[in-house]
Each structure stands twice: as C-alpha cells, then as structure tokens.
C-alpha cells in the first residue's frame, strides 16, 4: 500500500517526464518515416552515387548505437560550430535511427509486392511514377505496418538514452525524484511501468495488424 501511495505522489512529476519522452518519440517517428521512405528509394536507385549515399546513411543509422549518434550530435557537432539544445540533439539522433530502421522495413515491404502488380500497371500504360506511388507503395506499406510499429515502440524506449545528455525525459524525472529520498527501487519500478504501459498496448496493436495481414495475404 505504501508503494502505491508513494507512486501516486511521484506521478505528477513523472508525467512531465513522460510527456517529454512521448514528444521526442513522436517527432523522431513523424520525421523518421518519411525520411525512411526516401532512403529506401535511394537505396534502390539506379544512380550509383545516390545508392551509395543512401546505403551509408542507413548502415550508420542501424550499425552505430543510438547513444553514439546522440553524443556525436550533442558533443561532436559543436566542434564545427553547430550546437543543439539537448532535446533537439535527441530528436535528431532518434530520427536518424528511425529513418534507418524504417527504410529497411519499407524496402522489404515494397519488394514483397508481387511482380504481377507492376506488370499489370505497365501493361495498362500507367506511368512509372504512378505505378510506384499508387500501385506498389500502398501495398508494400501495408505489409510494412507491423514492422514500422515495432520501430515506433523501439524509438519510444530509445528516448531513455536522452537521459545521458540531461534531457528532462522520463528517466531523468525518475532519477531526480529518486535522488531526493533514495527510493530508487520504487521510482525506477514506476518508470519501467510507465514505459510498459505505453509499449504493451502498442505491441498488442502490432500483433493485431500482423494477424489481420496474415489473414488477408
């Protein structure tokens, strides 16, 4: 009971941190998906330079730990006179991450679209552009939905890394509360629950979409 009572007391302060975490996740997903689509097209491009650039951005974004990218943005770029606020740096780093992961998922989705779809579209004389954006992409995106939702969950959990550059997100709030009366166990348990309360329903929705897609396949 005492835990519950204490948790209730901590909650308002935790909520402001959760708000910041959701904001960072929201921005990096909203910016990361369109960039991911652009990257997926670059990686499949005919032009070698475009393809190489796309691949480099994707592979760094997936290969380097998010924390390393975060530090590069926050501590590294000021060397070149480019300085960000911590929250901006966090958004940029996670956006790169989201873009890199989502681009691979989108590319796989687009590649999974049956060849007959492109052929039928070509045979009808529909332009290459319309064939991609109106015929192939909508179908590819549909099969990419579960994977993309997975990226969203991963990004939300990844916001905890922003703690390392003092962004006042959920982990930072928890740490601040904990350092007041040293109830670290309780407070981090509560933080974990906050992450789970958001992530778990999102996972259920993902599973729901996966099942629906499997049924319609």
């Amino acid at each position: 009971m005492t835990w519950l009572a204490q948790w209730a007391g901590y909650l308002p302060q935790m909520m402001s941190g959760l708000g910041v975490s959701l904001l960072i996740a929201g921005i990096s997903i909203a910016a990361g998906y369109p960039l991911g689509l652009a990257l997926s097209m670059m990686v499949s491009a005919k032009n070698l330079a475009v393809r190489t650039l796309g691949l480099a951005v994707v592979e760094i974004g997936r290969g380097a730990p998010a924390l390393v990218i975060l530090y590069l943005f926050y501590y590294g770029l000021p060397k070149f006179g480019i300085a960000f606020e911590s929250i901006t740096a966090a958004c940029l780093a996670l956006t790169w991450n989201a873009a890199a992961y989502s681009s691979e998922i989108m590319r796989a989705g687009i590649q999974s679209v049956a060849r007959g779809q492109t052929e039928a579209s070509n045979a009808l004389g529909i332009s290459q552009r319309d064939t991609f954006f109106r015929v192939v992409m909508p179908q590819g995106m549909r099969s990419a939905i579960p994977g993309l939702m997975g990226v969203a969950i991963q990004m939300f959990q990844g916001t905890s890394l922003a703690y390392a550059i003092a962004v006042p997100e959920l982990m930072k709030s928890a740490y601040n509360i904990g350092s007041q009366d040293f109830n670290y166990l309780q407070i981090f348990a509560l933080a974990g629950i906050c992450y789970a309360v958001i992530s778990m329903p999102a996972t259920w929705i993902t599973v729901f979409f996966e099942k629906r897609l499997a049924r319609h396949a």
Partner: peptide, 27 residues
C-alpha cells in the same frame, strides 16, 4: 493493346470500381 493475365493481377488495395477507373483517370 490491353492485356489479361493468368493470375488476374487486380490491384488488391482498390475496389473493383477503382481498379477499372484508376487507369482511365491516369492514362
């Protein structure tokens, strides 16, 4: 030249009507 395939190749994300109308609008 119109073509009809063994595996139909209709666009699954469009209704029957849209399948028939979309190419007319675009082409």
């Amino acid at each position: 030249v119109g073509m009809v395939f063994q595996s139909f190749n209709l666009f699954p994300h469009m209704t029957a009507l849209k399948n028939v109308s979309f190419p007319q609008q675009r082409v």
